[in-house]
Design a protein around this nucleic acid. Structure first.
Length: 281
DNA sequence: ATGGTGACCTGGAGGC
DNA sequence: TGCCTCCAGGTCACCA
């Protein structure tokens, strides 16, 4: 899915269109979409009806809506989840999983649509910092105020594993997925298989700056999109894919040195890199 | 603690 | 046209 910039695009849409509204009805159309809500669909709906949405929040790739009663509804988009605003009378999408009817004139729906059902929703409580309990193992993301650069650099440099594996570990830093990991590694000229504990402080610092730059620019562009699966709440795609330098560019010239970008299997997925300017050090 | 693998799903693309 | 295989932006559990 969606990595941090795409999820933030969705969060902003929810803040604009859902916050302030009261949930008047909830329909769960596929039980798998709420599998993490152990009390089941009926309980899920009952807990939400009548609640007013007070804010839309995010840590890493997880979203949550805060509710007037003090609970939150947490959403993870998985690989293919979408949050769409639709007129109440609009026909059901093929992969519509959960539908929230909101008050207002005209009445609108918030719809969770998810082809592959890797995503899902559940109700949770928050800790003293306002973070859902279920996300306690998720590290802050690099755009949060509570993200400590020095601490991240220390943790990263203590990890005895390949640097890309560490970047994808949401307990080390959240929000980074396969695309932005490859893009940041390309920008910082670090090989994805370099052991994290061999990075210099300077390299780790460059890498963090690269993550912020790449994800920040993607956010400004409205997110990365290759197809209609990744859209904002109005169903529109971003255009950051025009700016990618490594991801998906197998056999195309590196923008820095002209060498063909290489694709290699890693962690049951693909890694893209320039074999010349991203060398092991 | 790390790393390797498969599982969870649907559908699009490309080869034959 | 169909059938096959491979691929996809994410996690999670389990095993060495």
């Amino acid at each position: 899915m969606p990595e941090l910039p795409e999820v933030e695009v969705v969060r902003r849409g929810l803040a604009e269109h859902v916050v302030g509204h009261t949930i008047s009805a909830v329909s769960v159309l596929h039980p798998r979409a709420i599998r993490r809500h152990l009390a089941g669909a009926e309980n899920f709906a009952l807990a939400l009806v009548g609640q007013r949405v007070t804010s839309a929040n995010r840590r890493g790739k997880s979203l949550w809506l805060s509710l007037s009663g003090g609970l939150v509804v947490v959403a993870h988009l998985g690989m293919s989840g979408q949050m769409l605003m639709q007129p109440a009378e609009a026909p059901a999408e093929k992969h519509l999983r959960v539908r929230f009817a909101l008050d207002g004139e005209p009445a609108i729906d918030l719809r969770f649509v998810d082809q592959r059902t890797f995503g899902g929703l559940f109700i949770d409580e928050t800790d003293q910092n306002g973070v859902p309990l279920a996300l306690s193992h998720v590290a802050p993301d690099p755009f949060e105020g509570s993200f400590a650069d020095d601490k991240f650099i220390d943790v990263l440099r203590s990890r005895k594993t390949e640097v890309k594996r560490a970047l994808l570990d949401q307990a080390t830093i959240s929000g980074v997925g396969n695309i932005y990991a490859d893009e940041a590694l390309w920008l910082a000229q670090v090989h994805y298989r370099q052991s994290a504990n061999t990075l210099t402080v300077d390299q780790a610092t460059q890498l963090l700056q690269a993550l912020r730059k790449v994800m920040g620019e993607a956010l400004e562009a409205g997110g990365t999109s290759f197809d209609a699966l990744y859209v904002n709440v109005n169903g529109q795609s971003g255009y950051f894919d025009r700016s990618l330098n490594a991801y998906g560019r197998e056999n195309k010239p590196c923008a820095r040195c002209g060498t063909a970008i290489v694709r290699e299997p890693f962690m049951n997925r693909s890694s893209f890199l320039c074999p010349v300017c991203q060398s092991m050090s």
